[in-house]
């Protein structure tokens, strides 16, 4: 028996450690910051009982009650920059501690666009496989030519070249997987201007979910590794690692499932996130890795990505 193989001819996909659930305790935007530390305290006070519920429910599901639950918090440094890490992070941690909450990991929103030199948003954009309307029998222009992604067929519109033609009759948009009636969703993924490309909030939030689910790879490697920081936060956001590990004894950042406890004002964003995630093709090898690990732990994982993501809206 002879055998011959060449390293570059084979795919090597690394696997990463996983918790059972990654709980997002909140999202911080400029307006929240401007509202002052009390707003944050109130938010954490509302979140705390839900975290406890998640914890109990997972303890019941896992053998010996050994549920691995990690918590995370996302700060926007992409759409607007405010304060500095050395000012803001201790304020968030204090507000959490007052409500007996431990934030294990802190992430910067701009990390969802690019982290440690890896263009994560582009990585995910390339993996979009658009939901095909009935009648799609071949290739279609990809969403990265328009920057929009829908879950169905848009209403027809008269183009510039059709100005002299009879008016196009209005027709309703339709959802591809409608049951009776449609809920048509059309999401803007990005826009371009003279400063370059700006990814939309739902698109970055979709990347955020994929990171938390541990489903992204760059050339087979995990694109983001949390970095432990013990106090002493920098003055510049760019100097803060994309994902910071704040709690030494935290279970892994990524998890089989995610739970986000969010204000209801994020409801629309999350509908858009789910519309995007329903159209992302995750590497088959990575999916198999995660599935076989969960099976080893006697855990039944949902087959579809979007079914591994849940929310509490407050």
């Amino acid at each position: 028996m002879t055998s011959f193989s060449e390293v570059t001819a084979e795919r090597q996909i690394k696997s990463g450690p996983l918790s059972h659930v990654s709980v997002e305790l909140g999202h911080l935007y400029m307006e929240d910051f401007q509202a002052g530390p009390d707003r944050l305290r109130q938010q954490f006070a509302m979140v705390a009982p839900w975290l406890e519920t998640v914890r109990r429910s997972w303890q019941n599901r896992t053998p010996g009650g050994r549920a691995r639950i990690s918590t995370c918090f996302l700060i926007d440094d992409y759409f607007s920059r405010f304060s500095t890490p050395d000012e803001l992070v201790p304020m968030i941690l204090d507000a959490a501690a007052e409500n007996d909450l431990v934030i294990d990991y802190l992430a910067r929103e701009s990390a969802c666009a690019e982290a440690d030199g890896v263009k994560l948003a582009k990585l995910v954009e390339d993996r979009l496989v658009p939901d095909p309307p009935p009648g799609t029998h071949s290739w279609r222009p990809p969403p990265h030519e328009t920057g929009w992604l829908a879950n169905g067929t848009r209403s027809p519109v008269a183009g510039a070249g059709q100005a002299m033609k009879p008016q196009i009759r209005w027709e309703p948009p339709t959802q591809n997987a409608k049951r009776g009636h449609s809920i048509f969703v059309d999401v803007e993924l990005w826009n371009d201007d003279n400063r370059g490309r700006t990814w939309s909030c739902p698109f970055l939030a979709a990347v955020w979910q994929l990171l938390r689910l541990g489903l992204l790879r760059n050339e087979g490697r995990l694109p983001v590794q949390p970095v432990q920081v013990d106090g002493g936060f920098p003055r510049d956001w760019d100097e803060l690692p994309p994902v910071v590990k704040l709690n030494k004894s935290a279970t892994p950042f990524s998890a089989y499932t995610t739970m986000s406890v969010l204000s209801t004002r994020f409801l629309q964003v999350e509908l858009a996130v789910r519309t995007i995630l329903s159209q992302v093709s995750v590497d088959e090898e990575v999916l198999k890795q995660v599935l076989s690990r969960s099976t080893d732990e006697d855990l039944r994982l949902e087959e579809e990505l979007v079914d591994r993501i849940s929310y509490v809206f407050l």
Partner: peptide
């Protein structure tokens, strides 16, 4: 053809390279 994914190559007995797999969605006859 896909960001974050390497082209696989083999050099023996002939240089051969293959792009990453890409998916296309269809709903048709």
């Amino acid at each position: 053809l896909l960001a974050g994914e390497r082209v696989r190559m083999s050099r023996r007995p002939i240089v051969y390279a293959v792009s990453p797999d890409l998916l296309t969605g269809v709903d048709c006859r």
